[in-house]
Design a protein around this nucleic acid. Structure first.
Lengths: 397, 397
DNA sequence: ATGAGTTATTCTGACTCTTGACATAATGCC
DNA sequence: GGCATTATGTCAAGAGTCAGAATAACTCAT
């Protein structure tokens, strides 16, 4: 509950920062419009932010006549944030400056079969230290870490990591121990939503859903521009909604979960059902199989087409449900499977989605497929953005 | 976005009103604790509210020693609100005072087969006028109306009424025309959530879901004590989430919807599938059939038991999904079907819910079944509460 | 050059909010 | 009647937002 004037200032300050980043380089006038704040307020807040070094006036734009517009940018030199994406098979740590521009990264393979906590924690710490050492003299504002499973951020405990069956491991404490930086932990589905919230000015106050399609499946839910975490930070586990009653077993222990059908292993299982001997199957490499399906589908291969049709049918049902329940403005498909198959799945699922959504929510929802760019890992970006958010809202502004 | 100090005051004032109602009769100290506001602030706000006539100091409590505690109540004499529940077969208009205590009501049958807009609007207007005339000289603060379907509150247009196939009917305008009162419109699933939010002090800032099980099925979603409406006021259409791929046809035009299985007609369809000649079936009366199932189930009738088991299986799947997606603190079952069958369905669905939810959201969620009391129609209460909310937040406090 | 015209920002004063500290009110008890 | 005790008003301080006045930084015509 907003109580005191200081809270208003913090909120508004933060809104200004996001507005500046979303529309870089931003004029004060534009920020006032985007945030709904008065001009005077934006001016004082910007002066403050510039004092603090968070924002710099980077350039000026000359209109035809009159005083030039001062254009502001987040100041990369303010400091660095590191985002770490812990996945089943790899670990990606990426350093960003305070303007969330990607700088350097460290990529390490993880052995999926050695899953003791220290087998993960040690490489993470190593990667963070490596990245930090690459930028000597620059202040490290914070580190964000993405770990799969349900993560209790307040206690920083990785309570349930689906692939690893960890239980009550205090991952945060283990990672942060002795590290001279604020470390924040969350799971990839929410961090993808955080990443999205920093990339598009329209996201500042929209209500939307970021679907993460990868090995795991989940949804980051953003309401009025704020990440919705639920009671215990486990909202968005759409991947474990029931799609088929008593259907396929899921790695979470339940059956018929959405993830069991449209997660990468689910798609591969569908392929194996249709043609157990398909040359597209690479038993040792999910990524390769998904890539093979994508390529074959582009060439009209009937097996691949059938796999996509089946996947799109499941995806359509599951997405229709979430649209009916949440009435979002946008549904965004992200994650590495989306990057490869998102467009074709969405195209084929559209009729299904249309058939299973009510007219009103259907008519107002937009779709977007996020393709990863080759430089930035979006989960790392989200983790870094989380660290930046925490730093900014913690810093008295 | 909270911008100015006036917004803070409005928010806080409103929080105080809700806190007083939730814990009637309430001490200032208790309110301060419940709202998190300082004592001084609560004191000034209460003085304001008492000035306005919204609150009265109704009694005092004598502690062992010291000045007695002044206990405050919402002042019923402040005015009246009327809540109207438009259902398929009846119309229930109920008058409440400003403390949301039920006073009088008017119940009219509606002929489900005559569904032109004026066949509904005229009785609604008549009922409102009848109720208003019963309390002469008392100010009417507002009228809330519940209409089935997807309702755009801002424009007040009933865009889609599932049972009636209305399209773009400006129900609000038709009802309010010439009536000397502020009329507000929403749909029953959200109004049940509003009603719940006014009945229990714990609901003030909880995140929860109110499942409406009746002829139609839906969910009112409340996040941090605030009703979540989605982009176009159609959030919560859980009844039209896909439960069974290509399953039973639903009256919304889609297939396999949750409502088609656990709404009253769905339950009856399940019964008819199990035993087409069951004596429990009353082809002309949904309510009677559901009541008969409830009674028979209590006596161990195998057909009724099988119907409940099947319904509980569907219910369990659908509820598990919403728990995984929203991670709520409480799931509340409301609506007339819940009142009759809620307990037994919930009991039988629990293992299913447990099997299909992740450990974290499962371990923190509570369940509650709302049984209607014989006096108050909960949808009317929610409609009245909506009108009261609108009045209070509109009034400068 | 220079003043007029234009547009962007900052400054100022008015008003409002919350809060901690202090003052005041209403009791029971001795 | 005075004292201890608890519950509420009151007040000044600190902080925010905002509308509008004042200032800054340009272009352009003269």
């Amino acid at each position: 509950m907003t109580a005191t004037t200081a809270d208003i200032r913090r909120e508004n300050s933060y809104a200004v920062v996001r507005a500046i980043h979303a529309d870089t380089p931003a004029s004060r006038r534009g920020v006032a419009k985007a945030t709904g704040l008065s001009f005077a307020t934006v001016s004082t807040i910007c002066a403050n932010l510039i004092d603090q070094g968070i924002v710099v006036e980077s350039s000026r734009e000359r209109p035809h006549t009159g005083r030039p517009t001062g254009l502001m940018t987040l100041d990369g030199a303010y400091g660095l944030v590191i985002g770490v994406d812990i996945a089943e098979t790899y670990l990606h740590a990426q350093t960003f400056n305070a303007a969330l521009e990607p700088l350097t990264w460290t990529h390490l393979p993880l052995n999926p079969s050695s899953t003791a906590p220290e087998d993960v924690v040690d490489p993470v710490r190593l990667a963070i230290q490596t990245e930090a050492a690459r930028h000597p003299g620059q202040p490290l504002l914070g580190v964000g870490v993405s770990a799969p499973g349900v993560v209790d951020t307040s206690g920083g405990v990785s309570i349930f990591a689906a692939g690893w069956a960890w239980h009550d491991i205090s991952l945060l404490t283990m990672i942060a121990d002795g590290l001279d930086a604020d470390v924040h932990l969350d799971n990839p589905l929410r961090l993808l939503a955080v990443a999205e919230s920093w990339t598009d000015p329209r996201r500042l106050d929209q209500t939307y859903v970021v679907l993460n399609l990868g090995t795991g499946v989940g949804a980051g839910i953003v309401i009025d521009g704020r990440l919705f975490r639920g009671q215990t930070n486990s909202a968005g586990e759409w991947g474990h909604a029931v799609l088929v009653s008593d259907g396929r077993p899921c790695r979470c222990g339940s059956t018929g979960c959405v993830e069991a059908y449209i997660g990468a292993p689910g798609i591969i299982a569908t392929l194996a059902t249709i043609d157990p001997d398909s040359p597209l199957l690479d038993p040792d490499d999910q990524t390769a199989t998904i890539a093979a399906i994508a390529a074959a589908c582009g060439q009209g291969d009937p097996t691949a087409t059938a796999v996509i049709a089946e996947t799109a049918r499941h995806f359509g049902d599951a997405v229709a449900s979430i649209i009916n329940v949440l009435n979002p403005e946008v549904v965004i498909m992200a994650g590495w499977v989306s990057a490869q198959l998102g467009d074709v799945i969405l195209r084929q699922a559209r009729p299904r989605i249309d058939a299973h959504t009510l007219a009103v929510p259907r008519s107002v929802v937009d779709f977007q497929v996020n393709h990863a760019d080759s430089i930035t890992n979006p989960v790392s970006l989200g983790a870094a953005a989380l660290a930046l958010e925490r730093h900014l809202t913690g810093v008295p502004i």
